[in-house]
């Protein structure tokens, strides 16, 4: 008999295909796990509406769990995902990977959040673009070590 704890443990090994250092649990997109006999219902929520990784994530979860139980994956839109659901260890993993974790503020016109460089910690950084290689990131450059880096946008 499979337990809820076993499923959560398995999900910890399912990586985000676009930022592979993060697991789906670090991202906070798994909202519920419900085990009933040999059936498992997993509720996930997309980060951004158009996140192309969602289909892959669903397939990866299914592959991970299907040996143990029949899997049903439900996509839930509300409550809408927020970067507040990123775990603390997830934020640290992002930083170690070279992506600045979400920084609040600077949401008005011509305002940018004050993001520190994930390499040298300098606060002297500049936003290069509001959008980046994936929906969840924007592009910055450190003005001290000149390293270009991604900022995982604060999404609320």
């Amino acid at each position: 008999m499979v337990t809820t704890e076993q499923i959560w443990k398995l999900l910890n090994d399912v990586a985000d295909p676009e930022i592979p250092v993060l697991s789906v649990l670090d991202l906070g997109i798994v909202r519920d796990v419900n085990v009933s006999g040999d059936k498992v219902r997993i509720t996930i929520t997309p980060t951004y509406s158009g996140c192309p990784a969602m289909n892959t994530i669903e397939t990866d979860i299914r592959e991970k769990v299907q040996g143990l139980a029949t899997v049903d994956i439900i996509t839930q839109l509300s409550p809408a995902w927020t970067t507040d659901w990123l775990t603390e260890s997830g934020k640290q993993k992002l930083k170690d990977y070279g992506i600045a974790p979400p920084v609040e503020g600077g949401t008005g016109m011509f305002e940018n959040p004050q993001v520190s460089c994930p390499r040298c910690e300098s606060a002297n950084t500049k936003m290069l673009a509001q959008f980046g290689s994936t929906a969840c990131k924007s592009m910055y450059q450190c003005q001290d070590c000149f390293e270009p880096f991604d900022h995982f946008k604060c999404h609320r």
Binding site: Y48, S49, G50, F131
Partner: peptide
Amino acid sequence: EQDIAMSNIALDLLGQCRS
């Protein structure tokens, strides 16, 4: 940068229209 911006906005809109 603006090429990426427009593609990102397009992607958000396509995601929303799928729902």
